[in-house]
Design a protein around this nucleic acid. Structure first.
Length: 583
RNA sequence: CGGGGUGUGGCUCAGCUUGGUAGAGCGCUCGGUUCGGGACUGAGAGGUCGGCGGUUCAAAUCCGCCCACCCCGACCA
């Protein structure tokens, strides 16, 4: 491709809309343009990257025996109604002219299960793994970071159908390998962590996290044993502190007019948040429960739900809180709280003489102690893990890291197949529901995640596997016959060798070409400048400062060699990732 | 949904406090000089000042309502 024919509107200044590094660079480099909140155009450079990622995805998925299909972006409401997901609030919903309801597909478990239940009858047709690469629509509460979290985004979604749980484990294993190799080949170092399954459902699931300070997710990681989990999911080790023998002081109910929040109460009483216990009133189905966590901690709702063996819990409304506690919101406490189960975070067991709400408006209890004043129904791991918490697997301490979620894989079991009546006839003559798994990679998110990790002050540094072009030839002075001849010859030879090469022969000053080349981040740069008259060109890797001066007739061979070694390094990473990380 | 912020030529921003009919840099067009890290110079083109309404002789500027976008949080794959 000749740069004069390529539409890549680069920007000298950073558009005000961008905050994240990758977002700024993708806009400045002319890879993407915003259409609306969370809605983007992929311009030629950006779409080239997308296509390269997609092709790596296809190679690795096909290698594991998965088959590519394409499902519709438009999904009739009935399918999502079959599993109850029509009520998910991320769905973009609308009606056709005859009032039938549809949504834009936000993930395709129902659609693919419908395909399989119609046409797969026998265990002989299993295993089956179908995948697609497609635009998804989700009405995100808050899009951010450009293409990091869009309302329309490109995703790989794969779905496996198996006869048994064990076969599903094998299918999951294959996807683990495919995904690990895909990310590694795209130049991303990901760590695999335990996670929450959210709207997808199922129990066992893992996320592929790309470490980046600007990431949205927090990952907790134990340096001693390697345990890693999303903070949403992370368990906390049960390690009781050596309880200092503190004398129990007499329980006292004191006036705390209008002091509701932890901050207000601590200030009013001159205490620290860790001297308080928060009492959170939750609804779990029809039951109301009280959950206790230390004043400076946050409750993890998923943990509470699991403790209560229910799917979903939600904060009680003001009316319920007043009815149960007899006090206005902000003064709930566990002392004398009858008729509700009290679920306490284990950490509270180590506390003494603490402060809780008084169950009477404008009061708090101080010098509260366990057993004497409170009857805890259940002890559990309830709080959101944070750095410094004990590791749940060893005696190490958790560290926290920020990350971008690049992919998520799930074992679904039979939740979808049962809900949708998707069954096959097994060898024993019995109808059985398919055992399913689903696997997603954020393809357009990777367009951002990669430059978020691979950049410097001058611009993006694309891994060669996903770069919009592999090689860029900078023809500094197109008017100069020597330079022009050398650049053109090299360009033709590289094209002939199957190299994806960009020739910058624009009528621009050299400085502009250097700046643009660094900004758009093509990994191999070749400069045809004034050394051309001496039969020399310069070759430089975008990732390195120094240029190598070489003879013109070595040019093609040298570039091919560099290209080969860059690709090989990525392949080796993929092998190492798969060999080293599997538990 | 809660909190904060921004909306002025294609881009980045000034002007708003104290009302008087819009400006800079970059980019763009034409000419000249330049040509190895975003050149210099001369001449140009280009703006319903987010929208609607109000106050006023007069509104980018003051007031009200609305919209859009960004950031933090909630939520989320």
């Amino acid at each position: 491709m000749r740069a004069s024919q390529l539409f890549f509107p680069t920007l000298r200044e950073v558009p005000a809309e961008a905050e994240m590094t990758s977002h700024k660079l993708l806009l400045r480099g002319g890879f993407i343009r915003r259409v609306g909140a969370g809605i983007y155009n992929y311009l030629p450079l950006g779409y080239r990257v997308i296509k390269k990622i997609e092709n790596i995805v296809r190679e690795e998925m096909d290698a594991q025996g998965a088959q590519e299909i394409l499902m519709p972006g438009l999904v009739p409401a009935e399918l999502y109604r079959e599993t109850g997901r029509w009520d998910e609030d991320v769905l973009f919903k609308f009606k056709d002219r005859t009032d039938r309801e549809y949504s834009i597909g936000f993930t395709h478990e129902e659609v693919v299960t419908d395909i399989v239940r119609r046409d797969v009858r026998s265990y002989r047709e299993l295993p089956l793994n179908l995948y697609q690469i497609q635009s998804k629509g989700r009405d995100e509460p808050r899009p951010r970071g450009g293409v990091v979290r869009g309302r329309e985004f490109i995703m790989l979604d794969a779905y496996s159908f198996d006869r048994t749980k064990e076969d599903c484990d094998l299918a999951y294993e294959k996807m683990w390998i495919a995904f690990s190799r895909i990310l590694a080949r795209c130049g991303l170092d990901a760590i695999v962590v335990e996670a929450e399954s959210g709207a997808i459902g199922g129990k066992e699931n893992e996320e592929y996290m790309v470490l980046a300070d600007s990431g949205e997710d927090v990952v907790l990681h134990c340096p001693s044993c390697g345990y890693a989990a999303n903070a949403e999911r992370c368990e906390i080790g049960d390690r009781p502190a050596a309880k200092p023998s503190v004398e129990m002081r007499p329980l006292e109910l004191i006036d705390t007019p209008n002091q509701r929040t932890i901050e207000e109460v601590t200030q009013f009483l001159g205490k620290k948040p860790e001297d308080l216990v928060k009492t959170l009133i939750y609804k779990a189905g029809n039951e109301v429960v009280a959950a206790l966590v230390r004043g400076d901690r946050d409750l993890n709702e998923a943990k509470l739900a699991r403790t209560l063996e229910t799917k979903h819990v939600e904060m009680a409304d003001a009316e319920t809180i007043e009815r149960v506690t007899g006090a206005a919101v902000g003064f709930a406490g566990p002392v004398g709280l009858d008729g509700v189960r009290i679920i306490a975070d284990r950490e509270i067991a180590d506390m003494a003489n603490f402060v809780v709400g008084g169950n009477k408006t404008d009061t708090h209890f101080v010098n509260v102690n366990l057993d004497r004043d409170i009857k805890v129904t259940t002890w559990a791991d309830l709080r959101i893990a944070s750095a410094g918490d004990p590791c749940p697997r060893c005696d190490g301490t958790l560290e926290s890291l920020r990350a971008i979620e690049a992919a998520h894989i799930f074992k679904l079991g039979t939740i979808y197949s049962e809900a949708m009546g998707a069954t096959f006839l097994d060898a024993d003559g019995q109808e059985k529901p398919f055992v399913m798994g689903c696997y997603g990679i954020g393809v357009s998110r990777m367009l951002a995640a990669i430059p978020e990790v691979h950049n410097d002050a001058d611009g993006i540094i694309w891994p060669i596997s996903v770069a919009p072009f592999e090689v860029e030839i900078l023809l500094l002075n197109p008017e100069d016959n020597d330079q022009c001849a050398v650049a053109t010859l090299l360009y033709e030879e590289l094209l002939g060798s199957g190299v994806d090469v960009l020739l910058d022969e624009r009528d621009e000053r050299p400085g502009v070409k250097f700046k643009d080349a660094d900004l758009i981040g093509i990994p191999i740069q070749v400069v045809c400048g004034r050394l051309a008259s001496e039969g020399k060109i310069e070759v430089r890797l975008r990732s390195e400062k120094d240029k190598q001066v070489i003879a013109i007739d070595e040019g093609t061979a040298r570039v091919l060699e560099l290209r080969r070694s860059l690709f090989q390094a990525l392949e080796e990473k993929a092998d190492v990732f798969c060999a080293g990380r599997r538990k």
